[in-house]
Amino acid sequence: SRYQRVDEALPPNWEARIDSHGRIFYVDHVNRTTTWQRPTAPPAP
């Protein structure tokens, strides 16, 4: 859903941030990219 819980676990090396307008975006520290779409953790084997 559009309103996912912010405290749900993100994949490793990802961080949720809030911009100056109060919107949540996500930072990938490995690839040094950002996205508005919440990343999903790969399925557990």
Rank of each mutant, 00 (worst) to 15 (best):
S1I: 13
S1C: 13
S1A: 14
S1N: 07
R2F: 01
R2S: 11
R2P: 12
Y3Q: 12
Y3W: 01
Y3V: 08
Q4S: 13
Q4K: 11
Q4P: 08
R5I: 13
R5W: 02
R5H: 13
R5Q: 15
R5V: 13
V6K: 15
V6L: 13
V6G: 14
V6S: 14
V6W: 02
D7H: 07
D7T: 03
D7F: 03
E8S: 10
E8V: 15
E8K: 10
E8T: 12
A9D: 15
A9T: 13
A9Y: 11
A9G: 10
A9P: 11
L10D: 04
L10Q: 03
L10M: 11
P11L: 04
P11A: 04
P11C: 01
P11H: 03
P11M: 05
P12M: 09
P12W: 04
P12S: 07
P12K: 09
P12Q: 08
P12C: 02
P12N: 10
P12G: 07
P12R: 05
N13D: 11
N13S: 05
N13W: 04
N13Q: 15
N13P: 05
W14L: 02
W14Y: 07
E15Q: 06
E15D: 06
A16G: 06
A16T: 05
A16S: 09
A16C: 03
A16K: 07
R17L: 08
R17C: 06
R17I: 08
R17K: 14
I18F: 15
I18A: 14
I18L: 14
D19A: 03
D19R: 00
D19T: 05
S20M: 14
S20I: 03
S20L: 07
S20C: 11
H21A: 11
H21S: 11
H21L: 10
H21Q: 15
H21P: 00
H21N: 11
H21G: 10
G22D: 06
G22M: 01
G22Y: 00
G22Q: 06
G22V: 00
R23G: 08
R23C: 08
R23Q: 13
I24A: 06
I24L: 07
F25H: 09
F25W: 03
F25K: 02
F25V: 03
F25T: 06
Y26L: 00
Y26D: 03
Y26W: 02
Y26E: 03
V27A: 06
V27T: 03
V27E: 07
V27D: 01
V27H: 05
V27P: 06
D28G: 00
D28L: 00
D28R: 00
D28M: 00
D28V: 00
D28N: 14
H29K: 13
H29S: 10
H29I: 10
H29R: 11
H29D: 04
V30S: 11
V30A: 13
V30I: 03
V30G: 08
N31G: 10
N31C: 08
R32M: 05
R32E: 10
R32Y: 00
R32K: 13
R32G: 12
T33V: 13
T33Q: 13
T33I: 15
T33E: 09
T34Q: 08
T34C: 08
T34V: 04
T34R: 03
T34G: 02
T34A: 04
T35M: 02
T35C: 06
T35R: 02
T35I: 01
T35A: 05
T35G: 02
W36E: 12
W36V: 08
W36S: 09
Q37Y: 13
Q37S: 11
Q37F: 14
Q37C: 12
Q37W: 06
R38L: 05
R38D: 05
R38F: 04
R38C: 05
R38N: 05
R38T: 07
P39C: 01
P39H: 01
P39Q: 02
T40M: 12
T40Y: 08
T40N: 09
A41E: 08
A41F: 05
A41P: 10
A41K: 09
A41H: 12
A41Y: 11
A41Q: 12
A41V: 12
P42A: 10
P42N: 08
P42K: 09
P42M: 13
P42S: 10
P43D: 13
P43K: 11
P43T: 13
P43H: 09
A44G: 10
A44Q: 14
A44L: 08
A44D: 12
A44S: 14
A44V: 13
P45M: 08
P45H: 05
